[in-house]
Design a protein around this nucleic acid. Structure first.
Lengths: 160, 160
DNA sequence: GCAAATTAATGATTTATTCAAG
DNA sequence: CTTGAATAAATCATTAATTTGC
């Protein structure tokens, strides 16, 4: 039985159609012990009862700007699929800036890699102009969203 | 061999360390035929001799209000990275309003897109100014490209 | 008012990335 | 691991705005 980074306390992996999870408070006790808090579901939003006052609590990790910048920097420097050890290390470092778990790092790299690839593919795909008609301008110039990205090169390596 | 929009009359592309180009008058002869004009370089400024009178000639394209208006309208409607064909069409249309080449259109969209992105990013960046120690972290984490490729499955059994 | 001086915009080049084909 | 395609980011260079001293 494989468990998540958090020791299986709140495995999100493999779940589908579960936009919001009634996260069991702070399982990992990374921050904010918050004794005696209780989670309740309401209108699809996870809410937490703290001292009898309802507080909306985000059910999913959201990187702080510092965390995001660091992750992007790592990606830029070549990290794509960090090993478990690397993930642990990165997570430990990023915890300095806010709540974060190993799986967040893992997923971030997965998603970022996939989305970068999509971006690339999209711009490469624009290479194949669909059979769509060339719409005409603000009068006559095609205002098209899909582009054939061969501009720069084709346009400029023109003479010798 | 691919040729440029300008038919190779004044290749600017691929050249390095060429701050100022002694642009060959109006190669495209779009406007102002200016017969018998000659170009001379002076103080780093391209000047043109017309009827024995020196006239400063602009070394770079400057869009007319109509050209600019049309380009902005196209951008507003979604054009971001026009294909070579689109660029040619746009260029042909805009020539109606003044001298212009395909590369001008190409550069315009590149620059406009990039600077719009910068504008938006700067507005969002008001949110996250700090980034002091974040630098140190990336330095501490080994930047490895696809080393220890573990599957998601393996990664998630890190603990127990 | 008007140029010289200075600053802001922006056109044109160069450099760094990305993914993926070989 | 290397290279090709295609940018996007960064930077350079020139032109337009504007400021300033007279």
């Amino acid at each position: 039985m494989t468990m998540g980074f958090d020791g299986g306390k709140d495995s999100l992996a493999g779940r589908r159609l579960r936009p919001l999870m009634p996260r069991p408070s702070n399982h990992g006790c990374d921050f904010l012990p918050r004794l005696g808090a209780a989670i309740v579901e309401q209108n699809g939003k996870a809410r937490e009862l703290v001292n009898s006052q309802q507080v909306v609590v985000s059910s999913r990790w959201n990187p702080t700007p510092e965390q995001l910048q660091t992750l992007e920097e790592l990606y830029r420097r070549g990290t794509r699929t960090p090993s478990a050890d690397q993930i642990q290390q990165i997570t430990a470092e990023l915890r300095r800036f806010g709540k974060i778990e190993g799986k967040n790092v893992f997923y971030w790299f997965q998603n970022h890699k996939a989305r970068e690839r999509l971006k690339r593919r999209r711009q490469m795909d624009q290479h194949s102009p669909e059979k769509g008609e060339q719409q005409q301008i603000t009068g006559q110039i095609p205002e098209i969203r899909n582009r054939n990205p061969k501009s720069a090169h084709d346009l400029f390596r023109i003479h010798d």
